[in-house]
């Protein structure tokens, strides 16, 4: 098969699957949260219904808003979120399917992923500022603070991975997701290094809700404080775009964590191809296993954390990330660096 055809198939299937799974994930998340809160909760299909309803609703643009920013922001958020998902998923799918080609070796650069993580948030901020309401302005300011606070631990993690990858697979590009997927970070490491990776993973446990704007880090939306903050003025299809963008971004961030920390596929664990009835079912099994991992990470880092904590204040969020989470991730980074096996190489 032509490389380009494979690439296009993967992108399109990721997009379609991503939208479907993202909305389904929202439904499952709400159901699980409801279960934690001892209630029934909405049907799992609620995400799709919400989207459908919002698309049909009248869209109101505030009079004193900057119209083109206000209208453009949701689209930017949606497109970049979709790009983020594609950018994380395609290299990983390539790795899972075992399709190797020099063209794809550099795919999925960490630095670009960090930027892509930022752009939907910046689009939200721009949309919030342009709406011209004091509540959305406060929401935008808060979103900026959360965005900046999470940058440091995120960057530290990425650098740690790059360093580790350069040691594990010197022949491959260090910043590539493909490399990280094919060389699990847990390999070739002593106890100190493993502890370091665990610390990095636990830092990510809090970065995920912050990136996706969930309690305890939903200050930008904070329903009871600033009435949905930067989404306060959005309605109709623009709100639907933001919701879809958020669903895609949540899936993307969770997928990133899975790819970085738990990339091992079924075949790696079982030590070979999966064959049932003479048919090679490795790829479907790999995808199912991946979805399982995603749902576990999703329900722990998004659903569980969100039901077990109160919303923090914005000053506490910045302190929490700049001091505690950064300290944890830097410690993790140092532990990985001083791991004797890395030192030896």
């Amino acid at each position: 098969m032509n490389e380009l055809t494979v690439f296009l198939i993967m992108v399109i299937s990721t997009l379609i699957g991503g939208i479907y799974l993202g909305l389904l994930g929202r439904g499952i998340d709400r159901k699980i949260a409801a279960k934690f809160q001892s209630r029934i909760g909405p049907p799992i299909r609620q995400g799709f219904w919400d989207l459908k309803k919002l698309m049909l609703k009248q869209t109101i643009v505030p009079e004193n808003s900057i119209t083109w920013v206000f209208k453009g922001a949701p689209l930017v958020a949606l497109v970049t979120s979709a790009m983020l998902l594609v950018y994380i998923m395609v290299p990983y799918l390539l790795y899972l399917t075992g399709y190797e080609s020099p063209m794809f070796a550099h795919m999925g650069d960490f630095i670009l992923v960090i930027y892509l993580l930022m752009i939907p948030a910046i689009a939200l901020v721009a949309g919030g500022f342009s709406a011209g309401s004091p509540l959305s302005t406060i929401g935008s300011q808060r979103e900026m603070v959360v965005l900046m606070a999470t940058e440091l631990p995120l960057a530290v993690t990425v650098i740690a991975f790059a360093v580790k990858m350069s040691v594990l697979a010197p022949s491959m590009p260090s910043f590539s997701i493909f490399t990280a997927a094919s060389n699990p970070v847990w390999n070739g490491m002593g106890p100190a290094g493993i502890l370091g990776v665990i610390l990095l993973a636990s830092a990510f446990l809090f970065i995920i809700p912050a990136e996706t704007g969930k309690i305890p880090f939903d200050q930008a939306e904070a329903e009871t404080e600033i009435a949905e903050g930067l989404l306060a003025e959005y309605s109709g299809k623009y709100l639907a775009f933001f919701q879809l963008a958020e669903a895609l971004k949540s899936l993307g961030v969770v997928a990133l964590v899975v790819v970085l920390f738990f990339p091992q596929g079924v075949s790696t664990i079982m030590g070979g191809q999966m064959i049932a009835g003479g048919i090679n079912i490795t790829v479907p099994c790999e995808i199912m296993f991946f979805l399982l991992k995603v749902s576990v990470v999703y329900s722990v880092s998004i659903s569980f954390i969100r039901v077990s904590m109160a919303r923090l204040k914005i000053s506490q969020v910045s302190k929490f990330f700049i001091y505690s989470v950064s300290a944890v991730s830097i410690t993790g980074f140092i532990l990985i660096m001083i791991d004797p096996r890395i030192m030896a190489m």
Binding site: Q37, S38, R39, T224, V307, A310, R311
Partner: peptide
């Protein structure tokens, strides 16, 4: 304070 579980 956004602690809905305690609320329920």
């Amino acid at each position: 304070v956004g602690f809905d579980t305690l609320f329920y």
